[in-house]
Design a protein around this nucleic acid. Structure first.
Lengths: 343, 343
DNA sequence: GTGAAAGCGCTAACAG
DNA sequence: CTGTTAGCGCTTTCAC
């Protein structure tokens, strides 16, 4: 393995000078620079990242922390990871996967290893125990999602408030007056504190109030099976509903199937909007789903971008909330004359 | 930041002794060990992973190399990544994402940085340019998938031969005699060399031959839209087909929808088996898909397991091919009396 | 503009 | 069983 010393000898300079040209950290004559570069090329030299990290106290590694045991990441979670890794690479950083429980102890361990320059936190809870160790260690970090007090951390997130507002507005404009929001807060304890649900519910209450509608919220599980069951429950529990907004794409498609089994037609009998959904998933449904397309890729890029900026400038960028875009599919239309439960 | 020297002083020993207890690398009296551990605890000491890596020449980092620009990883790719990261953690390793083009140069760069102890290669091509630099560098690596000459690399893979054989056999036993395989080899150049397609096609030819059937192979794109179109083409191009085996879950669901639009019933008019598919995706279809469930999670764990074993024992474990399990859904049944194109 | 030298925090002989 | 010490390969003052 060829080291910096080898290059220095080959070029007839000191290793310091080699270091200077590699890092572009001090002026070096064009001539010696050229000589050194030639030597590096000739010897096939690559700087040892570990030695570099030890000496410079910067590893150029970012950690991507996500919950290992919890519900699996949806399609947009995947988009996020891939995009973040790509963008990190473009900035000269590596992205390290850091599965873990949502607990502060593990975060302390990670940070103690001094192996990462910064951390991106996925699936942030309103009261997230991982944040405190981060703050204490002074390690730069970015949140995907928000804690209860968003002001104290760099974060990027989907604008759930705007998203649900747009979704409801879309349905309202079509003529719907009885719109049901399906979330999962009540389903399991771990979701009680789940930002996307909580924020969406709050904003839903607001927007329905503004429009003079009742804020009907129904709980459901997160898979297709739960969606199918939901089709039955809706009919009895929400007989007057003409439209449903969901926060989970699997449940949305399951609902579609469940309704079909009940001879109910979408969108004629019931309109459906699926939030936090990708185009691919929308196209798997029949009829295709009207979705609020989640900005997974943009979010991943933005998180890295902002984190890197903070690390280089030392200043924390402002939070960013990205809107979801309404992508009309075939699952929304004006409401039926008779709601599904009144026949 | 507290270092090993701090711990040593606090415990009244040399740093070597501290190192010995941390790494369990030399016998140490129970008494001094206890004292040292107490000191570590008291000072909140965590070993610096970077210094450790430099001194020991082992980073305890594994790279997960996957193509950045190519088609997006399916659900099982995601499963794979998550599982690999988890299992790596259980072995005391970190998993670093390494998006890249499928090119050897980038691999050489990665290895030159000496930042990873081992590499896992996803989406391996039959003739993969990343393998040569790996071999040259002596870095342990594991392939997910196989090169044309599988004997020269540690690898784990789905047993596509077995999988397609089982799928065809299942249909044959139901009475089908005109079974169409849908792959993507012809669709784009980058798939020409794609192991899963190539191997599946070959095995399909074999198994149909053994059963005395014609080896009908049709090309299709990889999304739901392509699947929908396929429904039309099948009827004219393969009028006698009674069953279809696909290698892409999105296309499979698209096909289902396309057939539905043509008033064709699944499985009454046409049976469908979707390979490399997850239970979740199967449940999104109506009717639910009969699938060959892809062992994404097992594969991820196995890849790490074998790579770590190779790194510790120095011996290359035998390759492993994992079967896909047939999970019956609602999309297969005995064939119709009249094939879809003969009405 | 270039070089000498002191670390970065730890591992691993080697000595005792 | 424990301590001394020489690095690991690079960055970064501080002289020249």
């Amino acid at each position: 393995m060829t080291t910096m010393r080898d290059v220095a000898e080959h070029a007839g300079v000191s290793i310091a000078t080699v270091s200077f040209v590699i890092n572009n950290t001090k002026p070096v004559t064009q001539a010696t620079r050229a000589r050194i570069e030639a030597s590096m090329e000739a010897l096939g030299y690559r700087p040892n990242a570990v030695a570099r990290a030890l000496a410079s106290r910067r590893t150029r590694v970012l950690a991507l922390a996500y919950p290992a045991l919890d519900h699996r990441l949806g399609g947009s979670g995947m988009e996020f990871m891939i995009a973040a890794a790509r963008r990190a690479g473009e900035h000269g950083y590596h992205l390290m996967m850091w599965p873990g429980t949502n607990d502060g102890r593990e975060m302390t361990d990670l940070l103690g290893q001094r192996m990462v320059d910064g951390v991106i936190l996925m699936e942030v809870q309103l009261d997230d125990p991982r944040v405190r160790p981060l703050q204490a260690s002074k390690t730069p970090y970015a949140l995907i999602g928000r804690t209860a007090d968003p002001s104290d951390s760099l974060h990027v997130d989907i604008d759930f408030e705007q998203t649900v507002t747009d979704a409801v507005r879309h349905l309202y404009d079509l003529g719907h007056r009885r719109i049901v929001l399906v979330t999962g807060t009540q389903v399991s304890e771990s979701y009680y504190n789940y930002g996307p649900y909580v924020r969406t519910e709050r904003a839903f209450v607001d927007v329905t109030a503004r429009l003079g509608l009742e804020p009907v919220i129904v709980a459901s599980g997160h898979d297709a099976g739960a969606g199918r069951e939901l089709a039955q429950r809706l009919r009895t529990e929400q007989p007057d509903a003409t439209a449903v907004v969901l926060l989970n794409e699997f449940a949305a498609i399951g609902l579609l199937i469940g309704l079909h089994h009940q001879q109910l037609r979408v969108p004629d009998d019931l309109s459906i909007v699926s939030m936090v959904t990708s185009d691919e998933m929308a196209s798997l449904a029949e009829p295709t789903l009207t979705i609020m397309r989640s900005p997974g890729t943009e979010l991943g890029e933005l998180a890295v971008e902002h984190l890197v900026r903070q690390m280089t400038t030392g200043q924390r960028p402002d939070p960013v909330l990205l809107p979801s875009i309404l992508v009309p599919g075939e699952s929304t239309s004006p409401p039926p004359h008779t709601p599904i439960g009144r026949r």
